[in-house]
Amino acid sequence: MELLITMVANLLATDGALLGAGIAALTGLGAGIGMGIATGKAVEATARQPEAVGKIRTMLLLGLAFAETTAIYGLLVSILLIFVS
């Protein structure tokens, strides 16, 4: 029992941060889905109304920036987990 506890503690102390970094990188999943939907909708809108392409591009970039933020948070967290000890 004591051995098991030390093993788990060792695992959490050494490899737990790396596992956490891997889990934090999963934020890319949501951001990817969101950005894909946004881009697809923008393409649809442009196909429907090609003369509004300037406005659509502006809005798309803003939306992409917002969606990208979550992925960047995940990346920051995983970088901090790996390199700050």
């Binding site: 920036a65 990208e68 933020t69 960047i72 948070y73 990346l75 920051l76 970088i79």
Partner: peptide, 12 residues
Amino acid sequence: SMTFRLFGSILS
């Protein structure tokens, strides 16, 4: 959010 967006994307 503006801080971390800028910092995170440039750092990455």
